[in-house]
């Protein structure tokens, strides 16, 4: 059976679906017998998701959008 280190080193590949079926099955087997690695897997997955969601919520401020529009119009006028 693979050890915790081998398992955690491959965790991103495991979650991103980048492992071959045999290696993936080896990890599944390890998880069955290793509660600390299950806890690690769950918290790893959740922290990654929470970070992704928290950082994705970037809105362009209205003032920036207005300025961009002005800028683009200005360029077009100069060229046109």
């Amino acid at each position: 059976m693979i050890c915790c280190k081998e398992c955690l080193d491959l965790l991103s590949d495991y979650l991103d679906g980048d492992l071959d079926p045999q290696t993936s099955a080896d990890l599944d087997e390890h998880f069955q017998d290793c509660p600390p690695c299950i806890a690690f897997l769950n918290t790893f997955k959740t922290s990654t998701n929470l970070c992704r969601e928290a950082l994705r919520q970037v809105d362009v401020p209205e003032i920036v959008q207005i300025k961009m529009k002005e800028f683009i119009d200005q360029q077009k006028q100069e060229k046109g």
Binding site: C3, C4, K5, E6, F40
Partner: peptide, 15 residues
């Protein structure tokens, strides 16, 4: 990890 490659830390599952 310890010398055998097993986790040393106590992991709490807060997920």
């Amino acid at each position: 990890y310890n010398g055998f490659g097993y986790q040393q830390e106590k992991i709490q599952d807060w997920s």
